[in-house]
Nucleic acid binder design. Sequence first.
DNA 1: CGTACTATTGATAGATATCAACGCTGGTGG
DNA 2: CCACCAGCGTTGATATCTATCAATAGTACG
Lengths: 245, 245
Amino acid sequence: MTNAFIRKLEAHGPFSAADRALLEQISRKWREVSAGHDLIRMGDAPDEVRLILDGFACRAKYLKNGKRQIVDYLIPGDFCDLHVIILKRMDHDITALSRCVVVDIPRARISEMLERPALAKALWWATLVNEATLREWLVNIGQRSAPQRLAHLFCELYIRLRAVGLVSESSFALPVTQKDLADTAGLSEVHVNRSLQILRQKRLITLKSRELVVLDAPGLIAFCGFDPNYLHIGEDTAVNDQTLM
Amino acid sequence: MTNAFIRKLEAHGPFSAADRALLEQISRKWREVSAGHDLIRMGDAPDEVRLILDGFACRAKYLKNGKRQIVDYLIPGDFCDLHVIILKRMDHDITALSRCVVVDIPRARISEMLERPALAKALWWATLVNEATLREWLVNIGQRSAPQRLAHLFCELYIRLRAVGLVSESSFALPVTQKDLADTAGLSEVHVNRSLQILRQKRLITLKSRELVVLDAPGLIAFCGFDPNYLHIGEDTAVNDQTLM
DNA sequence: CGTACTATTGATAGATATCAACGCTGGTGG
DNA sequence: CCACCAGCGTTGATATCTATCAATAGTACG
């Protein structure tokens, strides 16, 4: 079985049999975390790197006044905390949004991965795409209107989830509350509600019972000016809106 | 001569003589870029990785409607585009804010660096701190008020610039316009002007002629709730506001 | 000593937050 | 199986923040 993790990493260069064997061994022993529970807490200095095999989680930072900013959504195949290999402590929390299946990879295994060029490159790739995504989020919050911010987030999740096979019929599970979206987009809960109504009125999306349906992909893309380049999926492949969504 | 680059990288583990020799060789051949000129443009796929030895630059993404979001400030010792080793193309621009001294490191040299554990680790460190900084910027724009956003930015620059010896007497060169600050903080130019007035009224800072003076460091820190942890400078060292600024 | 960029100011419009209430829904225990 | 409860979504009214527009004042630089 090739899981989301291996599929995602291998997207940018084939692995040798030995590489794959190592990855498969890594993802053999997993555990479950139920929705709402923390995978890692700020200040933790874990000895393993966590990896999500199934489920949805978010990375968030809290202010002293209780405000929260979600800075990433973690989907199957994403590493939670590659940082702790180098940076001793977590500077933020990771919380499960749905039931998650997680593997804990010991540092030693990561070191082994870093010694294999193809795997090391894959880890660099994952890290750098993360960084590029953070930059785009900054653009999103800094420069776009409330409804556009949400639209952009949905476009991104669509592409990322599709890359791991979690989109069907233009729709996908999105186990978040409007408050979560608010804390992602730097908005209030009420304003998220009203912004979603705008997106619905425009017949761009539907979001009900934690299920997001993209009704009009080109429209959604145009509405927020989404350009998937920053995700560096299918590098050097000619892409356009039609092929993408 | 140990330049900012080497000093910064070495902050997290000593290098061997060979490591240092490689670094010194790398930073030997430099060139100048004058203020306002681009170091790299979106879409470029350069064969070298650029590194700033002196000067100030910014990393920015543009929207189709002309809006701009600055997503990072680059100071001496910072890599411009480690990404292009792995991700083929730049997905943003880098522009000099002041006259810059830059070195172009051929890919091959970067590969040599990655083969040396201490140097590879240093590169990982730089990348992961970048990522952590982006997360904190997201918190900044998403959750703080306009004056707080600026205060937080100033705190960060203070710490980062001090780490490379560019702060003296609680002040440092900050070659940016109010429009630049606006595009950094997701605000309008006018509102930045008024927010700066608030910071001045509170006797926290002074900003004139591209020189920022921190008048009241503890006050500035308290005002925006700055916590330097995310910069991962002096890991595992007990730090507090007093020792920091 | 213009000229162009940058900073500042005032007035107004627009976007978003906050506050408060109510309705819906899914789960739980009796 | 129903009643209740808690969390979530929705709505309206209002306050606050921030953008926009337009004009003026500095400032740096050729």
